[in-house]
Design a binder for these strands. Structure first.
Lengths: 152, 152
DNA sequence: TCTATATAGATGCAAATGCATTAACCTTGG
DNA sequence: CCAAGGTTAATGCATTTGCATCTATATAGA
């Protein structure tokens, strides 16, 4: 018996849909931001995490855990954010290797502006296409594809 | 009345899940290919379309329609595929501007090898996580997020 | 304490991407 | 037939990404 193991047609279709749709939606959102003269989505992700973290800020490695960015990616993204005055790097007392990243007032403002556009994209691309109930079901099903699986 | 329009919590969650999960799964699949010493997923997409197109091949602009790649992206990807001997560019009779791209025997072989790994990833990451019925439901829901919406 | 190892983050270099433009060819209207 | 405009594909240049490595600090073990 050979090791064939081609996925089921249902699995292939779900995979293809997932990849296609996510890329398409992401590109639409990205395009809307660009059209508004705002920074790319990646910046939003980081600003969002930092805004939630509050005054305490976050260490770069914590951002890596929360987002899915690679280490060098975060390192350079933070450098750009700092150059734009959206975040600040503070030395951390008990660990001389790293620093804490804190969002600035300007960073919060940029995040607000981005959310105005990004949120609208989410509404148009997702919120307007499925009912609340259907959205919940999609979330639940996708959650089970996550690693580790999400219960809710 | 202000123009607030923050998306519903359900929409936000579905969006976040979609973005996270798709990136995570894509990266897993990509990693598996790399670990097997095979080319990236983008190559598979193109080889797949070309394999389906058969001996007639496809024009670059047709590949752009079928995949979601940008024009310059396809142009360079095809250059790399050609350099590796996986596709060949044939002049097209009635249009001197472009050429037809045809997959070579080596290209088919590479695609086969990639599918062995890629298919396994799909099975593990998706096929093994949800039932056939659930997969069908995910596909249907995601299809409605597509542009244009898919019926099935 | 001193050495080995682990962790945090930055960076040099090569490859890929995005953007704008260009080159080549086709089509259409006069 | 010719000019104007459209389509197909490639490419120069700047930015971004990926990989590997490197520096600096921290921690654990002899």
């Amino acid at each position: 018996m050979t090791e064939k193991a081609t996925p089921s047609p249902e699995a292939i279709k779900a995979w293809a849909r997932l990849m296609r749709v996510s890329r398409q939606l992401m590109e639409s959102a990205e395009e809307a931001l660009k059209a508004a003269g705002l920074p790319p989505l990646a910046w939003y992700d980081v600003l969002h995490e930092l805004a939630e973290a509050g005054e305490g800020g976050l260490r770069p490695f914590q951002l890596i855990e929360r987002t899915l960015f690679a280490q060098y990616n975060i390192s350079r993204l933070l450098a750009r954010l700092e150059a734009d005055g959206l975040v600040e790097k503070l030395p951390v007392a008990d660990d001389g290797r790293g620093h804490t990243i804190r969002i600035t007032a300007k960073g919060r403002e940029t995040r607000r502006q981005m959310w105005a556009v990004y949120g609208r994209s989410i509404t148009e691309l997702v919120g307007a296409k499925l009912s609340a109930d259907e959205l919940t079901r999609v979330s639940a099903l996708l959650g089970r594809l996550r690693h580790p699986p999400a219960s809710d």
